[in-house]
Design a protein around this nucleic acid. Structure first.
Length: 84
DNA sequence: CATGAGCGT
């Protein structure tokens, strides 16, 4: 399941996010969107989890929680492909 | 190359 994570601290790294999600389930992969020019975090990331139950639990558990001093929002991510 | 809602090289 693709998970969207927003309102992230610019200092937050993929490893931090991964560990946070791994605390509630197995994380398949994590990706923080970085800017092409500055190379800094755009403030949101995507976490992919194979287990649907664990993903939902992680979303419900990490949604609106404090991470690195910032309140993050966790929701189900939209499909990057298939716009229609 | 910057800063604070939103959905990815």
């Amino acid at each position: 399941m693709n998970i969207f994570v927003g309102k992230l601290n610019y200092a937050t790294s993929e490893d931090d996010l991964r560990q946070a999600f791994e605390a509630y389930g197995a994380v398949s992969s994590c990706k923080i969107i970085m800017d092409r020019f500055t190379g800094r975090s755009k403030g949101f990331a995507f976490v992919e989890m194979d287990d649907n139950a664990e993903a939902t639990a992680a979303i419900d558990a990490l949604n609106n929680t404090l991470m690195d001093g910032r309140t993050i929002v966790v929701n189900k991510a939209r499909p990057r492909e298939d716009r229609f």
